[in-house]
Amino acid sequence: MNTLGPTILYLLQGGLVTFLVWLVTVVFSLPLAVLVAFVRKMNNRFVNAILGVYTTLVRGTPLLFQLIFVYFGVPIMFKIQLSPFCAASLAFINSWTIYMSEIIRGNIEGIDKGQYEAGKVLGMNYFQIMFTVIFPQALVTALPSLCNQAIEAIWGTSLLSTIGMDDILKSARVILMRDFSMEPFIIAGILYLLFNGAVVLLFKKIEERTSRFRIQYTK
């Protein structure tokens, strides 16, 4: 059992990679998703057509495809170099922005139109109404779905090894091959569970704190 310490340490390094990609994904894609949802709400036909096609492309291809496309394809297309971390972040942020913008858009539709009217009669303009009244409420009602997306983003990181990054899963596999023991897999599983549990707990806390204004007026 004297290998347990180094194994955990090695897996934690992989965990750091997993965590960083996840963090970058969530931190950037949420505001971007709000922005995309806002742009789509402006109902510009041309812009919406483009975003519609783009959404179809993103949702119509597997994440692994997009990851490989960004890592190998984008450098060829634009003659630039991308580190695996950059490529992974770009691919993940892109995908999660699109998925979450659809969720937020759906939740905006669910906000009572009286809320918009209340803002309008108080003299607020469209931007003020959207950003101070509508979005905060849409984000609150979207919390359970956004939590799912945040968890999906953890699982998404298990693809990182395909572009040569040493995430939790890859690290576990490396040790497994070397030692022929199940230990690293079990520890990796525990790390995933802890990570997942922390995310769920975080969202639960946010939901609790926002619960007192989770009401929809009905007639």
Binding site: G114, A118, T210, Q216, T218
Partner: peptide, 11 residues
Amino acid sequence: IVFQNFNLFPQ
């Protein structure tokens, strides 16, 4: 205007 169903901002 004051609405029938209030329309206060819940957040």
